[in-house]
């Protein structure tokens, strides 16, 4: 069953640059998809449109029944509550503890304290950071910070997890650890779309690979390995 359906999606920035041309893409529930391509190929624009940080110029982006392209600015939260986003620079609240960072998402929804406590500890356990609940982000390593960011993104049980180069700032071993966590989350049923430049990771994971070039989908491998034609 489709979770994401993009049809004729085009994005032209105000400065006249076209980042994505008439893109069609369908992603099913539970899939793990890598989006790869060289710098400037439009992969960041593509995922930014998914969590509505960018609005497409034309086309349809349907995620779980919501037409993201038509969402008004004040209603953007409706889609963001259904998806989790993980960034290369983690985007953690520096002045909040690990626990507070993760709990923040649930607090926003007005979930009771006891339920928040239970869910936060469960998800921190999943990413292997249950023992660091009281630490602040600057007291953690890069890999640990990314795990906190992942925990925050999935604590609400989203159907879709968008990862924008989550291993971009991490060394190889740490990156593999992060990928293990993501794979586990995927096994639990969450669809994952991940933008990456990391050759090794794509090779190892053997998942679907969408290769973008100059704003167009060049290849879409079913169980792709990384091929040297991209990146």
């Amino acid at each position: 069953m489709d979770l994401i359906r993009m049809k004729n999606v085009k994005k032209v920035y105000k400065n006249g640059v076209t980042a994505v041309y008439d893109l069609d893409l369908t992603i099913e529930k539970g899939e793990f998809v890598f989006v790869i391509g060289s710098t400037g190929c439009g992969k960041s624009t593509l995922i930014k449109m998914l969590y509505r940080a960018e609005k497409p110029t034309s086309g349809i982006i349907n995620i779980g029944g919501i037409d993201v392209a038509k969402l008004k600015n004040r209603n953007v939260y409706k889609i963001r509550r259904k998806i989790g986003v993980v960034f290369q620079d983690f985007k953690l609240l520096e002045r909040s503890t690990v626990y507070e960072n993760v709990a923040f998402t649930l607090e926003v929804f007005g979930i009771p304290k006891a339920e928040i406590h239970e869910k936060v500890l469960k998800v921190l356990d999943l990413v292997g950071l249950k023992h660091k609940v009281k630490n602040y982000p600057n007291q953690l390593s890069g890999g640990e910070q990314q795990r906190v960011a992942i925990a925050r993104a999935i604590v609400n049980g989203p159907k879709l997890l968008i990862c924008d180069e989550p291993t971009g700032n991490l060394d190889e071993t740490t990156s593999l650890g992060i990928m293990q966590v993501l794979e586990e989350i995927n096994k639990l049923g969450t669809t994952i779309i991940m933008v990456t430049h990391d050759t090794d990771i794509v090779q190892r994971m053997q998942k679907r690979v969408v290769l973008l070039d100059s704003g167009r989908i060049l290849k879409d491998y079913e169980k792709g390995t990384y091929r040297h034609e991209a990146i």
Partner: peptide, 16 residues
Amino acid sequence: KREIEIMRLVGASNLN
């Protein structure tokens, strides 16, 4: 600004 950006990203409504 970053804090607000994060709040928006995790699904906080403008009112939130």
